Amino acid sequence: MPRYRYSSHLIAGLVLATLLLAPLTVLADEFAEGERSFRAQCVGCHSIDPGRHLAGPSLHGLFGRPAGSLEDFDYSPVLEQADLSWNRKNLDAFLAGPQDFLPGTRMVLWGLDERTRRHIIDYLESLAAP
């Protein structure tokens, strides 16, 4: 019976490939979880398509955008006057309790748990990445 000899370079290459691909699998899983959370919690009122507003504004290009700044959406006065731009910190606080973060907002949400917020924020941020 023949014995197969594997070079240390081949084994090292396989180990390296496994280590490099593992994070991609985790990222794909995280993206899928974020998309599921978005669909379960947000898609009834928000679109991710540019210019497509539902009950809430499109979330396309959300990161870095000043709150209440889309010209073709009718925001609550508190959002139009808010002096903030959407980033991870502000979005997390808003999704934890919109009325606590910006009293008077029209956003109808009782607040999301930390894990769900993180997944949704990660998902929305990944859509903004080049």
Rank of each mutant, 00 (worst) to 15 (best):
S7I: 02
S7Q: 07
S7Y: 01
S8T: 13
S8M: 14
H9R: 15
L10R: 15
I11T: 13
I11R: 15
I11W: 11
A12H: 10
A12E: 10
L14P: 05
V15K: 03
V15I: 15
L16W: 04
L16T: 14
L16H: 01
A17S: 15
A17Q: 06
T18K: 00
T18H: 06
L21D: 02
A22E: 12
A22I: 14
P23M: 07
L24W: 13
T25I: 14
V26R: 14
V26A: 12
V26C: 01
L27Y: 15
A28F: 12
A28M: 10
A28N: 13
E30M: 10
E33N: 13
E33M: 09
E33T: 10
G34R: 03
G34C: 08
G34L: 02
G34Y: 01
E35N: 05
S37V: 09
S37G: 01
R39I: 04
Q41P: 01
Q41V: 07
C42I: 07
V43K: 05
V43I: 13
G44Y: 08
H46W: 02
H46A: 05
S47F: 01
S47H: 05
I48W: 00
D49I: 11
D49F: 07
D49M: 09
P50G: 04
G51M: 04
G51W: 04
R52M: 05
H53T: 05
G56K: 01
G56V: 05
P57T: 00
P57M: 02
P57F: 00
P57E: 11
S58R: 05
S58L: 01
L59I: 03
H60L: 00
H60E: 12
H60Q: 10
G61H: 11
G61A: 03
L62E: 01
F63A: 08
G64V: 07
R65M: 10
P66M: 02
A67C: 05
A67Q: 02
S69D: 15
S69T: 05
L70E: 11
L70Q: 15
L70I: 14
E71H: 11
F73C: 11
F73S: 10
D74T: 12
D74P: 14
D74Y: 02
Y75S: 07
Y75R: 07
S76R: 15
V78M: 08
L79C: 06
L79D: 13
L79H: 06
E80H: 10
A82R: 03
S85R: 13
W86C: 03
W86S: 00
W86Y: 11
W86I: 07
N87K: 01
N87Y: 00
R88Q: 10
